[in-house]
Computed example of a mutant assay.
Amino acid sequence: MRRRWTVGTLLLGLAVAALAVFNLFIGPGGAPPGPGPQGTTTAAPGFSTSAPAAAATPAPAAAPPSSSVGQTTGVPNAPGLPTIPESQLPAEGRRTLILIRRGGPYPYTRDGVTFGNFERILPRKASGYYREYTVPTPGESGRGARRIVAGQAGDKYYTADHYASFKFIAEGK
């Protein structure tokens, strides 16, 4: 028995295929995937994993890497945000700071992606200014709620509650 294809069925198939290609190459973020830093390939926007990647993928560093792990950036705190000394971050947060300073490699594929600052808690900056990095949470099977958000000028912020609040990280203290 032979299946009869109608124009409507073909158009619907083409529309679905076009949408799939659009999401794969352009996606909701508006930027196509492609070569990332150090020649790596970034994932298509909208795709994420809840578990660490099998092979760590480097992502762009938020600030120039420094050889001194405890070095202070000299970036002033944004008005109204509480401050947390680097030494008071959880151990996982301090390890994430080291990775950010080194420029990776990062254990999660979403580390280093643009943070949109939709909550408007951090100072308003141009799109792409902030990058987010996972601070692993013991006992969590996925990424958990803890993050470090790093600005291009070297400013870094910690959130333990998935962007509901932030603390400015006083590095080197």
Rank of each mutant, 00 (worst) to 15 (best):
A18G: 05
A17Q: 05
R4W: 03
A15N: 11
G34N: 06
P35M: 06
A59F: 00
P37C: 14
A61R: 04
N23V: 08
A31S: 14
P65M: 05
A31D: 13
L14K: 00
P64D: 08
T49Y: 06
L12N: 00
F47A: 04
G39D: 00
V16T: 08
V21T: 14
G36F: 01
P32A: 14
P64I: 00
S48L: 05
L14H: 01
P32D: 03
I26W: 15
A61L: 07
G36P: 02
T40W: 10
P32H: 10
Q38M: 06
A17K: 01
L11Q: 06
S66W: 02
A31L: 13
L19V: 14
A53M: 03
G29N: 14
F25G: 10
P33L: 10
A56E: 08
G13T: 05
A43S: 10
G27M: 10
G46R: 01
F47P: 03
G13P: 00
S48Q: 08
A51T: 15
G13F: 01
P28Y: 09
P58K: 10
A53C: 05
I26R: 13
G27D: 10
A15L: 15
L11M: 15
T42K: 14
G29K: 04
P32F: 09
S67T: 12
P32K: 07
L19I: 10
L19K: 03
T57H: 09
A56N: 09
G46V: 01
P33W: 15
P64R: 08
A59W: 00
P60A: 15
A53Y: 02
A15I: 13
A20R: 02
A51D: 12
A56F: 11
A61H: 04
F22L: 10
L14G: 10
F47R: 07
A17V: 08
T6I: 11
G30C: 04
S66P: 02
L14T: 00
P33D: 07
T6M: 10
F47V: 09
R4I: 13
A53D: 03
A59R: 01
L24N: 09
G29I: 03
S48R: 12
V16S: 02
A43P: 02
